[in-house]
Design a protein around this nucleic acid. Structure first.
Lengths: 150, 150
DNA sequence: TAAAGTTGACATTTATAAATATCAATTTTT
DNA sequence: AAAAATTGATATTTATAAATGTCAACTTTA
């Protein structure tokens, strides 16, 4: 009678997702426009949200409403993630990538023609998946600096 | 007739600094309470601001007003700075330091008893001095990750 | 000894981000 | 064919962060 739902399976259309999160459809689109979330879109262009998407969105909400970090603040924090180091692209790709210089927006909102990321799907990328909040970035920086000194 | 002013010489009392920055005295105290700035205080407890302080405050203002990053957002960004790696404290000090876990506030607002920082003045520390805005942190992360892969 | 500074608490103003609503013209789904 | 989705633009509401003001009791400066 019950079916097991894959965390990442895109199943909820926007109206349903909005209701589950208790926010408006418009807000969901707004977060997307700001680059905070990447919902699944079939060829049809209709959005579908997974359980994992809902969790991520709730996390963003909490950061905005409880933690009082503005959307532009969140974007700046996400722009700090060193994607080149995480996906380990080539040195050339890294040096030519917009993400290296960008201070305002997360890497997955940038154009990436002609490099490692061209063939990758940002929604499924570790960078997007593993950095939905600030704690994860701090942990990452800690590991990085400990590795360095060890 | 003119005298050369040391960038870091604490000379302007709070009212003068406020007027120069075109903000209220109250706001200056607020930024301080939030941990964004550390003004000089003589034994008397009266604040004095240097030219460098004024620049730093103007930078904070721009981040809040132009860049639309909230104060709590700025604090979170500053909390990402890996001070242990910058001042190169001992491994023991690092592991016991609050700054390692802290996600909300910059290291210089934390208690640091019984470690390397006990004897240091935060206002003169590289961590405080070199990270007054987000760009500097991004640059730091870039260097760190490039070093790692090289 | 005024004038200016201090802390702390409380209150108010103002500016604006976040969220919502609506309309229009079009496309997709069921 | 109706219901629900799309983009894009425009407008409005609402919630609250940022900034300011004020009062009180006290200290420091010039």
């Amino acid at each position: 009678m019950y079916r097991i739902i894959n965390e990442n399976e895109p199943i909820y259309p926007i109206r349903v997702a909005a209701k589950m999160l208790n926010i408006s459809v418009h807000t969901l689109r707004m977060y997307e426009k700001e680059g905070l979330i990447i919902p699944f879109k079939k060829e049809s262009k209709h959005r579908l949200y997974s359980e994992a998407d809902l969790k991520r969105i709730q996390c963003i909400r909490d950061t905005i409403n409880q933690d009082k970090v503005s959307i532009d603040g969140i974007k700046r924090i996400l722009a700090l993630v060193p994607c080149w180091s995480i996906i380990k692209c080539s040195e050339d790709d890294m040096k030519n990538c917009l993400a290296l210089k960008e201070n305002l927006k997360p890497c997955w909102t940038l154009k990436h023609n002609n490099n490692t990321c061209t063939n990758r799907n940002c929604k499924e990328c570790e960078v997007y998946m593993n950095f939905s909040n600030c704690h994860q970035l701090k942990d990452f920086i800690v590991k990085l600096t400990i590795k360095e000194t060890a």
